[in-house]
Amino acid sequence: MRYGATELRFPDFALRPGGHLLLRGASGSGKSTLLALMAGLLTPTSGCLTMDGQELALLAPAARDAWRGAKLGFVPQRLHLSASLTVRDNLSLPYVAAGLSPDLARIDAVLGELGVGALLNRRPHQLSQGQAQRVALARALLRAPRFILADEPTANLDDESCDATLTLLRRASDQHGLCLVIASHDARIEAAWGGWSALHRLRLASAPAPAAA
């Protein structure tokens, strides 16, 4: 597909139920773009992408939004927690965006599962980096998604916080039976999960430089 002035091509791949995927590659190789395709935020210009039996390009925009809300949880590199809202209110937003009443019991349960249940009434500036990461993961898990997409989740973390985040991601994927897709150039993920038999790897080549005018 073409992204700006650059054409990106992705190899064919398939991920079986229960599998997890680590996308590796240098900056500009298309890791974040492939995540956006998996989320239905971008449409491929050729080929097809099927997620949980659904070819996303065939969905109308409203249906694609509904599919995304029901099937996907997203853990971005920048956590995008609203500074003016408490943790509980931040986690209510996915429900509001879907036209649903916030499930406060579910919010309490997921935060408790991740060890941050006592932080419900704090605001983002009152959280440590590790606490904020757990809140972001809780937000991604709220609606029992089939997939968690994580974009460079450890890039700005020290080794201790990196280990804690990877432990949370792997535990969440195992406990909730979801497919975890991580896009990262962080070699610590490979070192930590090298023996995880459920983890598949896909290395993307760097995008070619644009032709000279």
Rank of each mutant, 00 (worst) to 15 (best):
P17T: 05
P17N: 08
A26D: 12
S27W: 02
S27V: 03
S27Q: 03
G28F: 07
S29R: 00
S29L: 03
G30Q: 10
S32I: 14
T33E: 00
L34V: 05
L34M: 07
L34A: 07
L37M: 05
M38C: 09
M38N: 01
A39D: 02
G40V: 07
G47F: 08
T50H: 04
G53N: 14
Q54S: 12
Q54C: 14
P61E: 03
A62F: 07
R64N: 13
R64A: 15
A66H: 05
L72Q: 12
L85W: 00
L85R: 07
T86G: 11
D89P: 12
D89C: 12
Y95N: 07
V96Y: 12
A97G: 08
A98Q: 13
A98E: 08
L100H: 10
A105N: 09
D108S: 08
D108M: 02
G112H: 06
G112E: 08
E113N: 02
G115Y: 15
G117M: 01
A118N: 03
Q126H: 09
S128F: 07
Q129R: 15
Q131C: 08
Q131P: 09
A132G: 13
R134Y: 07
A138G: 06
R139H: 13
A140V: 04
L141H: 02
I148M: 08
P153L: 08
N156I: 04
D159L: 09
D163W: 06
